[in-house]
C-alpha cells in the first residue's frame, strides 16, 4: 500500500505526485482516499503550484503521523506519558535524537518569507494538516509575542496609519473592547 501514488493538481493546473501514506497526513486527502471515489488526480483549487511542493515536503516527513510536530511544540514533553514506571532509557535517547532531528528539520523547513507563511497556513487549514497549521500559526504568533508595536510592524512590514493624536487618544479610550463583562 505504501507504494500507491496519488496525484494532486494545483490551482494553476500543475500535477504533483505523492505517496498515499504521506498524503494521509492531510485529513482532507485521507477522506478523499478512504471515500474510494479517487479518480486519478485530486484537484486542489485553493493551493498554487509554488505552495503545493512545500505541503508535500511536510507530508512526506510526517506521513500519517499528525502528532509528532505537536509534541515538539510542547517542548518534547508528552504529558500523557511523562513518567512511566518501566521507563526505557535507550528508547528515551532514541526519541530525543528523533525529536532533535525533527526540530532541526522544521527550523530549516520554516525558513521562508511572510507571503509563503500565509499561503502555507491557508493550505494547511484547507487540507486539514493539523501539525503544519500549528507550526505556521505558531510562527506568526511568535512574531507578535512579547514585542512592542514597533517591532510587530517591522516583523510584518506594516506602516502605522495612526496619527499622533489617535495614538494619544487610544490610551484614553475606555470600555472600547467587547470582551469586558460579556457575561454580566
Amino acid at each position: 500500500m505504501s507504494s500507491t501514488k496519488i496525484f494532486l493538481k494545483s490551482s494553476d493546473d500543475k500535477t504533483f505526485e505523492i505517496d498515499e501514506t504521506a498524503a494521509r497526513a492531510s485529513e482532507t486527502l485521507k477522506n478523499i482516499i478512504d471515500g474510494g471515489c479517487l479518480d486519478g488526480v485530486i484537484p486542489l483549487p485553493n493551493v498554487s503550484s509554488n505552495i503545493l511542493p512545500k505541503v508535500i515536503e511536510y507530508c512526506k516527513k510526517h506521513g500519517g503521523d499528525n502528532g509528532s510536530s505537536k509534541k515538539i511544540a510542547n517542548g518534547g514533553v508528552d504529558k500523557d506519558k511523562e513518567i512511566l514506571p518501566d521507563y526505557d532509557e535507550e528508547e528515551d535517547k532514541r526519541e530525543k535524537v528523533r525529536v532533535d532531528e525533527l526540530k532541526k528539520w522544521e527550523e530549516e523547513y520554516m525558513d521562508f518569507d511572510q507571503q509563503v507563511l500565509y499561503d502555507l497556513m491557508l493550505a494547511a487549514n484547507y487540507l486539514h494538516i493539523k501539525g503544519l497549521l500549528d507550526l505556521t500559526v505558531e510562527k506568526a504568533a511568535s512574531m507578535i509575542r512579547g514585542r512592542t508595536p514597533d517591532q510587530i510592524r517591522e516583523n510584518f512590514n506594516i506602516n502605522s496609519d495612526f496619527t499622533p493624536e489617535e495614538e494619544e487618544e487610544m490610551i484614553l479610550i475606555e470600555d472600547e473592547w467587547d470582551d469586558e463583562w460579556a457575561f454580566d
Binding site: A140, A141, G146, P149, I152, S160, D161
Partner: peptide, 25 residues
C-alpha cells in the same frame, strides 16, 4: 487568519501591543 487563528493564541498583554500596530490590526 489573523483574527481567528493567530491572535486567539496570544495573551491580552500581547493584544494590547498588536492593537497599536495599525487601524486594521
Amino acid at each position: 487568519v489573523l483574527e481567528a487563528m493567530i491572535l486567539t493564541r496570544l495573551s491580552l498583554v500581547d493584544l494590547v501591543a498588536a492593537s497599536r500596530v495599525s487601524k486594521a490590526w
